[in-house]
Design a protein around this nucleic acid. Structure first.
Lengths: 207, 207
DNA sequence: GACGTAACTGTACCACAGGTACAGTAACCT
DNA sequence: AGGTTACTGTACCTGTGGTACAGTTACGTC
């Protein structure tokens, strides 16, 4: 029998983040205790505070990871949609369909959950976390607004339309869809709302 | 000088609820302490637990009050809109405009805030609170679906449309709009989203 | 092989939040 | 006069986030 020498790990921080993410998405930030996390990855409290100065910093690290991952996912989806299609409107419509399918498959994986969780527990977090959160929302707005401008250039809208508000509508539906999905325990609400947004776009721009 | 005899109050419970509502909308549920509330209304901890068996029951009472108030407000708005207008589509469009104006004036007064707060701190609450929350969302769905059915009967939609999803869209935009408004500290987002929903309805149903 | 650094452990301690458990009391209603 | 309502006061317990700091062990580097 080889005695397993307690090997030194270099991935403890990542394992903490992973476990924290799972726990927070399932139970919320306030209900996820540090004790629970350190028991899960097998370290002591001192170990936790070696990696994160406080719970706030854990939230920030988590949010950063989530935002980065999310950006890659969206980049990927809309790149694929654009490859299939040269037209800006049709590319966006295809991308939205892929997005809805993704949200159908893994609705809890979305950073919106985290963002909203953070929003509704305001006082628990500091300015840097709020700023990070706001910046990620604005990044969505810019991304979608650029696409909407390209679309509006080719397809004059049927009604005058505020492109910023229209870009925000998708984020709004995602955030709201996550809340609704939780409240009704029905994960199909979010993807259906995305498809409705798609219908709205088609009605607005399609000739 | 008349010595003020410490008069017995019968409205302590209401005052607790009022203060708690304010504090929770501003800071979130978890960050609002019982100590803070009892200091605010001038009673002791025992006094608090005389009125509410625990914090959970405070949440329930608050949610009930909010839901009732909300129903009255919506009833009022759409009654007024209907009085001005016999047509189901135009009545709804007018109602939505009034609703957007109301959300512009007092966005933080909406129970959606509370509902979402509760959603995202799941484990803190028991089944009765969740059920209450879900029921209030379903009440919205029924209310708007009934109107949409009346509209669809007079104005056949331009595209086939899922009336439940369309009814949910308004709730979704409200919930999401509150989150977005908080994240960006921009209270105009919610009313603008409601007006976009209005545009969507018009495009879908108007001849 | 010595030396520093990264990644922890261990111990001790603190404040605050959410309770629990009762016994007592003052005002009000009948 | 007696019961109910609306509390007060005291004491105590748990869990959670956090601080302080000294000690330890593996690893890479010179």
């Amino acid at each position: 029998m080889l005695q397993q020498v307690p090997r030194r790990r270099t991935d403890t921080r990542e394992r903490l983040l992973g476990l924290a993410e799972q726990a927070i998405l399932a139970k919320g930030f306030a209900s996820t205790s540090i004790d629970e996390l350190i028991a899960g990855v097998g370290i002591t409290k001192s170990g936790f505070f070696y990696h994160f100065r406080d719970k706030n910093e854990l939230a920030r690290a988590l949010l950063e990871r989530h935002i980065a991952r999310d950006r890659e996912l969206l980049d990927d989806i809309f790149r694929r949609a654009d490859e299939l299609n040269d037209d800006p409107l049709h590319g966006f419509l295809v991308g939205l369909k892929l997005f809805a399918e993704m949200m159908d498959a893994l609705p809890q994986a979305h950073p919106g959950c985290l963002a909203a969780t953070l929003c509704y527990q305001d006082q628990l977090f500091d300015r840097t976390v709020h700023a990070l959160n706001a910046e990620s929302v604005l990044a969505w707005r810019r991304r979608f607004r650029a696409r909407l401008e390209a679309i509006a250039a080719s397809y004059p809208p049927r009604q005058p339309v505020d492109l910023d508000a229209l870009a925000d509508m998708l984020s709004t539906l995602v955030e709201g869809g996550l809340v609704m999905g939780r409240a009704l325990k029905d994960p199909t609400i979010l993807p259906r709302q995305i498809l409705l947004f798609r219908d709205f776009l088609r009605l607005t721009f399609a000739p």
